[in-house]
């Protein structure tokens, strides 16, 4: 069996004295789409913060493609092929669309190629290329943030609440793109509040509650567990 692209071993993490992750074990096989589901406060976003280097794990280990990255900084991880689309619009609001794309051109990818790819996938961005990103609609901002995932050719893509605050039609459009990224062989971890949306596109689903992974399984196996978890936790 090949080395998983991401492996978490008994990861603990805390904000001050409050422990949010209490021993998370998770394997993301190379090329798989894993959905991370669970109610508010389960620790999903915290888990992504630990994986992307924004929050240090207090215990446990994180491996990316077999290498321990527990102490790596966000910048180092980004240069090692990890891309995160953070919760709530991962764009620079006072920069134009074009400038945002320029920043996405990581080492080795020429800026012109980044722009071409982005504009081909999302023609709407081309129409607004001179506009400041902060003046785009929420959906267009997420397209721009996703463009990075498209163009920087990451090994592992983390998507945090992509659908937040967006109309259903736009969410569908965005997840179509996610599916095509996955088809190109990129491993993806999707954090979603809306279970149905995520279950439609994932290979594996992990359910989190109280800082631990409750269950991992194929999307159709997870359905019943999901109902229990969500009804217990959500209002």
């Amino acid at each position: 069996m090949s080395v998983p692209i991401l492996e978490l071993v008994d990861v603990h993490a805390a904000y001050g004295r409050i422990e949010v992750l209490r021993g998370v074990d998770l394997r993301v096989p190379a090329g798989a789409v894993v959905a991370l589901l669970g109610p508010n406060g389960a620790g999903k976003s915290t888990l992504l913060k630990v994986v992307s280097g924004q929050l240090a794990a207090t215990a446990g280990d994180v491996h990316m493609a077999g290498v321990s990255v527990r102490n790596a900084s966000p910048g180092e991880l980004a240069r090692a092929g990890l891309a995160l689309v953070p919760e709530g619009r991962g764009v620079f609001p006072n920069l134009s669309v074009e400038d945002n794309l320029r920043l996405m051109s990581c080492a080795g990818v020429p800026a012109a190629q980044v722009r071409d790819t982005a504009y081909t996938t999302f023609p709407r961005l081309h129409e607004r290329r001179r506009q400041l990103a902060g003046t785009l609609s929420g959906g267009e901002q997420q397209m721009l943030a996703l463009a990075r995932a498209l163009t920087s050719d990451p090994a592992l893509l983390l998507l945090d609440e992509l659908s937040m605050g967006l109309a259903p039609a736009i969410v569908d459009e965005l997840y179509d793109t996610v599916r095509s990224i996955a088809a190109a062989g990129v491993s993806i971890v999707v954090v979603e509040q809306f279970a149905r949306t995520a279950l439609r596109i994932c290979d594996l689903a992990a359910v989190m509650t109280g800082g631990r992974i409750e269950t991992v399984g194929a999307p159709d196996e997870i359905g019943s567990t999901m109902a229990d978890v969500m009804l217990g936790g959500a209002a």
Partner: peptide, 23 residues
């Protein structure tokens, strides 16, 4: 230049710039 764009971006959101592999 990318450096100049990064200078402007770092005002907007330094944390995000770091996530993008910028410094």
């Amino acid at each position: 230049t990318r450096a100049g764009t990064a200078m402007r971006a770092s005002v907007d959101n330094p944390g995000l710039l770091e996530l993008y592999g910028g410094r």
